[in-house]
Design a protein around this nucleic acid. Structure first.
Lengths: 94, 94
DNA sequence: ATATTTGTTCGCAATATTACGAACAACCAT
DNA sequence: ATGGTTGTTCGTAATATTGCGAACAAATAT
């Protein structure tokens, strides 16, 4: 009934469905990458909460983390970012 | 910290974050309007569940309902649809 | 070895989401 | 008036989300 494209689009949209995650993605796409600590300094939430939001974005495939001990460098997952962009574009240009 | 645009974008994205709601919006934008009953016939969910999803989309401002007794005609809310489109476009074209 | 930095995981709580069936309200037709 | 159609609302249940602090793990620095 509901196809895979619709499910993937909904999955991406769900990941975008929180102000903090929008902010994180905007930050990442403006400066290509950043560290979790950079975000903790700016955002008025506990680091454990931020960690959950980052996990949410990771699970959705929109970002990826690279260990740069002792920190973790987060970047946009360009491939999936592109897919989300295309799915949303197709959706709105119906 | 987090501005109004980011909140509105997250609000729209959240509304798009379920396959059923994606399907409903696609249907509505392809045929401009439709009745709730049309969707109930196609979708494998209870009518009360569909009603909840429609309410969700209405609360987010993406659709609007017009009484055509005894049915209700649902249409895209073009103004807010446009806003969502522009916010998402700006977001991905960063 | 010990302490510091960085970020995740755990435990908990409050609230939201998703889903269903039954009951209800509004309107039309007979 | 009685019955049929349409869709919402209510009650309930299971699960997910959001958020915090404390505890933990991994690596570096002293």
């Amino acid at each position: 009934m509901i196809n895979d494209q619709q499910k993937r689009l909904a999955r991406y949209a769900k990941a975008l469905g929180h102000p903090v995650r929008i902010f994180v993605l905007q930050t990442l796409s403006l400066q290509s990458c950043c560290y979790s600590g950079d975000l903790t300094e700016i955002l008025p939430i506990a680091k454990s909460t931020l960690s959950q939001h980052l996990k949410e974005l990771k699970d959705a495939g929109l970002i990826q983390g690279e260990i740069e001990a002792p920190r973790i460098k987060y970047c946009i997952n360009k491939e999936n970012w592109k897919e989300a962009q295309l799915l949303l574009k197709a959706f709105f240009d119906i």
